[in-house]
């Protein structure tokens, strides 16, 4: 259903195209993402290293939160029509944070390879604090 929502260029800017709230971040998830993503930085899994680096605890990989946020755009793109994604990592995601990703239509425009939808992406925690702020471009089917 989500894949139809770009509507071949007929959706109003500002429309929420997709939204998903994930289960709270756990240490187990961080360990599994570290292994699956080859990101071996101990700051995400070793509390002693995190403390020695000036943090109260480990925190989530930015790329974990980005991957889940980009999944919304990739689903809207049918898994094959994503042209670009970018994000700014605004603040750290802590263990226990339940992140909601939202995809909202920004506009349609003519790109170098045809018409695309530009989609604003946001990831925010349970308090509404923004973690990631990004953008995706999706070729229209």
């Amino acid at each position: 259903m989500a894949e139809r929502e770009l509507g071949g260029g007929a959706v109003a800017p500002g429309t929420v195209l997709a939204e998903r709230t994930e289960a709270p971040v756990t240490r187990d998830l961080l360990a599994r993402f570290a292994a699956a993503s080859y990101d071996s930085n101990p700051i995400h899994v070793d509390i002693d290293f995190a403390k020695a680096s000036g943090y109260p605890d480990v925190f989530a990989h930015g790329m974990l939160i980005m991957a889940r946020m980009v999944r919304l755009a990739n689903d809207l793109a049918g898994g094959t029509r994503l042209r670009s994604v970018s994000t700014r990592f605004v603040s750290i995601t802590r263990v226990g944070d339940a992140i909601t990703s939202t995809a909202r239509l920004a506009r349609y425009e003519d790109g170098p390879t045809g018409r695309v939808a530009v989609v604003d992406l946001i990831a925010a925690d349970q308090a509404g604090d923004i973690k990631l702020k990004g953008e995706a471009t999706i070729a229209l089917a």
Binding site: M63, R88, F89
Partner: peptide, 10 residues
């Protein structure tokens, strides 16, 4: 390694 944070990704 403990001093870096990811700022942006594209």
């Amino acid at each position: 390694q403990g001093k870096i944070l990811h700022a942006e990704q594209r």
